[in-house]
Amino acid sequence: MGEPVAAPGRSRSRRRGPLTYVFRLLVITYLVLLVAWPVSLVAKETFANGLESLRTTLSDPSVTFALKLTVIIAVQAVVINTVFGVGMSLLLVRYRFPGRRLLSALIDLPLSVSPVVVGLALVLVYGGRGGWFGPTLEDHGFQVIFATPGMVMATAFVSLPLVIRELVPVLEEVGTDQEQAAKSLGANAVQTFRRITLPAIKWALVYGVVLSLARSLGEFGAVKIVSGNFEGQTQTATLSVEQKYQDFQQATAYATSFLLASVSVACIVVVSLLRPRTEEKR
């Protein structure tokens, strides 16, 4: 083809007009004012007195309890969502069955349902007083609402689609050729999954798991309703931030927020470092 000599439009579209710089400046200002500056203030508030505020926060037993509980619940929810997510993605992509489209649309529902509605919904079914299944379950010694199982469920609910949304496009792109080849050479289902499917979806899976983890650690509304928010019993880190702030222990609230924010920013950074590698691999 070669460079068209008499095409002024082409060179114009390549040159950086003043508009490019206006746009760039506008976008940077917007993002700094909306996200970067406010987020950086949390770090500033936390380290205003050196490490003092972090030290007092981490020696507060109610905060350390809340942080531990948050990690326990988030890990359980992420494990459940990972297993469910991998299975569901494989089923949605590899198989055709009645109701598949409906299921695939419903899977996205948790992303757009309000956390408060999630909490309400779980209480209506599993609540000890007047829930559909709650009283029966409690008679058998299994308390869901105001206890850990309900909190894990609420957390799993809100981060349910994240793994699936990452895996489905990758699985669709990879196709089934290699899996069929492996099967024809005598590999069983487990071998095929471990040797062929898993390596292909590895990075998308890590991406989905990291996002689920970030989302699970930060869940607030649904957990607030389902847990009952009892300090030292069912209070997670995000709930503790709210309480400490309202109890005028703002230094503690900021320090806990700083810890939560660092983890979520770390998750985002990990994901952004992984992403280009997945794209190269395709």
């Binding site: 987020v39 927020s257 979520s264």
Partner: peptide, 11 residues
């Protein structure tokens, strides 16, 4: 997307 919403409010 990843920041806990309560932290977003505080921020």
């Amino acid at each position: 997307f990843a920041l806990p919403t309560i932290v977003a409010g505080l921020v």
